[in-house]
Write a protein that binds this DNA or RNA. Structure first.
Lengths: 217, 217
DNA sequence: GTCTATACTTGGATAGAC
DNA sequence: GTCTATCCAAGTATAGAC
């Protein structure tokens, strides 16, 4: 997280890193609670308890700080969920994991941060590519999860993992938007429970058909 | 569209209505192309070719103009799609209609307008309820479509129309977000083609099971 | 009804003291 | 590295001429 740090790890350097971390955390909170428009240098500095000038000293511009905040969110998500998804080897397990993940994301506001940056990217020139870059690892993780869940079942023919991943990510984003609008995340979670039931059906069908197939030598 | 208009429909009144309409159209275009943050009174007036002061004269505030723009978008969507969805009496037909509708929405930028307002509602106090109000008819239309598509098939047990409608709306929003980010709507449409294949499977399953049921007297 | 001009506010970014 | 002070741009909203 430190910029370079080759020489002696002095106290000053440590304090400076603290400020950077505080600014990033404040930026995440501001994005989540007041949106991109409300995430101004002044607002973020107020939350971090420091001067507004430090935003520009440490990050160059507000946008670059917000991108650093998005990086941090991505890193946290990856650390938490990679393990959760690694063992989802059935559609049922994938649906259950998706439910846990959405719950955590809604609580932590990670999806909100993502949505704010995606929406802002539409208006701010050049931001789109940088946001897309940071979304990419997440999409890959989702695709991998879809692959291990669908496995070699016939469902993979009807819905390739790439498409499944896109649908899952889009679903997360859309559900968060609706949940934030009516301030009701229970409905979103109920929907994922339904998905769980459908997943069990899919796994059953896969189980019925798999033995009858005659490929893979 | 006119405010009241009880007396003689003079030329002046007509011209005034034209300005109102021009402002609403300019607001829609601004929301679509520059987002909520870029949809300022100055920008909208520039697009409408009139003075910035007229925004406040006719609509009182920028937010109220943007809500009028959302009303107009809702009205146009309803007029176009109600007929399209009325005859979707199978999941396959529903998927096909959804594909046509998403294509039209992406081209016209209607979903974009909606997303901008939903996202803004998160930050602007009091806006959420007004946006939710305007989203309601759309949700009802979608639910009705889901009902007529699922009909009395067993799928309706696993996925009630209300949940199906929520999933559809969330999917539209999420797909538009992703499509705008990578500037690629082909991927979103390809996904809906996949949904079409799955829908055919669902209809087949429903057809297999329906004859064997013994209720509804 | 429509315009120009302006008061007021907020935000990005920099300068310079410490 | 961190602060205060400041410049400049852009936005909302209103006043007043026409």
């Amino acid at each position: 997280m430190a910029k370079a740090g080759p020489r002696a790890g002095t106290l000053r350097r440590q304090l400076s890193a603290d400020v950077r971390a505080a600014l990033v955390n404040a930026a995440i909170a501001a994005l989540r609670e007041t949106g991109y428009a409300g995430a101004s240098a002044r607002e973020i500095a107020r939350r971090a308890g420091c001067s507004q000038a430090l935003v520009f000293y440490h990050f160059g511009s507000v946008n670059d700080l917000l991108l650093a905040a998005l990086d941090e969110v991505s890193a946290r998500r990856m650390a938490s969920y990679r393990g959760l998804l690694a063992h989802a080897t059935s559609v049922t397990a994938l649906a259950a994991a998706a439910r846990d993940i959405l719950t955590a994301d809604l609580d932590a506001g990670y999806v909100r941060v993502l949505i704010e940056m995606i929406t802002a990217a539409h208006a701010v020139p050049g931001l789109g590519d940088q946001v897309a870059e940071r979304l990419q690892p997440w999409r890959e993780l989702t695709e991998q999860a879809a692959m291990s869940a669908l496995g070699r079942s016939p469902a993979a023919r009807l819905l390739p993992p790439g498409d499944a991943a896109r649908a899952l990510v889009a679903g997360f984003l859309g559900l968060e938007l609706l949940a934030s609008l009516d301030n009701d995340r229970a409905a979103a979670l109920a929907l994922l429970d339904r998905a769980g039931s459908l997943a069990r059906l899919l796994d059953m069908l896969a189980g019925l058909r798999l033995p009858g197939r005659k490929e893979d030598r």
